[in-house]
Each structure stands twice: as structure tokens, then as C-alpha cells.
Simulated assay, not measured.
Amino acid sequence: MSRLNEILDQARNCRTCESHLEQGCNPVIQAQKSAKLLIIGQAPGLRVHQTSIPWNDPSGDRLRDWLQLDKEQFYDSSQIAIVPMGLCYPGKGKSGDLPPRKECAPQWHKSVLEQLPNVEMTLLIGQYAQNYYLQDKPKTLTETVKEWHRWAPTYLPLPHPSPRNTLWLKKNLWFENEVVPYIRRYVHQQLKN
């Protein structure tokens, strides 16, 4: 068994936060050493928790649309690694899901990412991933995403593709006009090689 597979098995069996999770633990993560694209989102939603399939919800539909990838391509772990900030569904809050558990990223990210030498681009979806990975970034998500050139192609900060962000997307048409085409070109070019 490869070192990455050992780490993934350990991560999938992690119970560190179990006492804080109303729905219990179900770490959702996908990766293979050959992956060229890394997606770091927030944490699985309830539907993802129930199915154990990452981005298996309307947010995932929008993300796949942004990338112009079908489900078969998106779930090909030899090409695309998916390592959320929190591996388990954190539960429901007042205005949506709770934030990802703070224990997860420090416990798992470094060891998993060290085993992904072929990643050329990392999509940082939402403020939790951006706050964790981007140094000297602007205070707001909108400003951070507007300055995407600063980190591209290594990191690409994105808003969350949740249907709750439809208003943000309508107010910030530049995102789908400038950023999405760049990501699509880059991702398709990388996945061809």
C-alpha cells in the first residue's frame, strides 16, 4: 500500500471530532498521486455526508459547470484530488452549514498534499480555504477573488458555488467572464497532458 493510500485510510477512519458532529463522522476525500488539479473547499454538506460522494449537490453541479467537466472526469481521482478544509459534515447553523472543524486541515492537509507532487493548480473555494492558504490576502472574499492573478496558476481563489451565492455571481459578472474561462482553459490543458 502506498503512503498516500495509508494516509487516506487513516483520514477516512478519523474520529477526532466525533463528539462535535451531530450526524457523526464520515470523512469525504479523494486523491491519487497522479492528480493534477486539487480542489480545497469548505466541508461536505448533508447530501455529501449521506452519499460519501464529494460535491454531490447543487454546489457541485455549478462547480462542474465552471470547470466544464462531466461527473466521470470530475470524479477521476487520478486527475482531480478533493481535500476539503473539514472532511466531515459539520452540521447545520443558523444561516447554512456550520464552518469546517478547525482540527481537520492541520491534521490532514500537509501529509496528503505532500503526496500529490503533480498538482499544478489548487482551487481554493470559499474563505476558509483562502484564509488558510493565501498569505497577505485582502480582507474580503470579493477582493481576494478579484486579485486571483496574484496566485494563479498555483492557487485560484473562488467564491463558493452554492446556490446561496447566486446574488454574488450576478453582482460580480467579471468572475464568470474572466476567471471561469481561465480556469477552464488551464484545467483542460492540464488534464490532457
Rank of each mutant, 00 (worst) to 15 (best):
M1T: 12
R3M: 13
N5S: 15
N5F: 10
I7E: 05
R15W: 06
H20S: 11
G24N: 05
G24I: 08
V28P: 04
I29M: 09
I29C: 08
Q30I: 10
Q32C: 12
Q32V: 03
S34K: 08
I39R: 04
G41K: 02
Q42L: 05
A43C: 04
L46N: 08
L46C: 06
H49D: 02
Q50E: 14
T51P: 09
T51S: 15
T51L: 01
S52R: 11
W55C: 13
N56L: 08
D57N: 15
L63R: 00
D65Y: 09
W66Q: 01
L67E: 05
Q68D: 13
L69F: 02
D76F: 07
Q79H: 10
A81L: 12
A81T: 12
V83I: 15
P84C: 08
G86R: 01
P90N: 03
K92L: 13
K92R: 13
G96E: 01
R101M: 08
E103D: 08
P106N: 04
P106W: 05
Q107R: 11
Q107I: 03
Q107K: 13
W108H: 10
K110E: 15
K110M: 12
V112P: 04
E114M: 13
P117Q: 09
P117G: 07
V119S: 03
M121Y: 02
L123N: 00
L123F: 07
L124W: 01
G126H: 01
Q127Y: 06
Q127P: 04
A129C: 08
N131D: 15
Y133C: 15
Q135G: 10
K137Y: 05
K137G: 11
P138G: 12
T140I: 12
L141M: 13
T144K: 01
V145T: 09
E147T: 09
R150Q: 14
L156R: 00
L156V: 14
P157V: 07
P157M: 07
L158T: 10
S162E: 02
S162Q: 02
T166A: 15
W168S: 13
W168E: 12
K170T: 14
K170R: 15
K171R: 15
K171F: 12
L173Q: 14
L173M: 11
W174H: 09
W174L: 07
F175H: 10
E176W: 08
V179F: 03
V180D: 02
Y186I: 07
H188L: 08
Q190M: 14
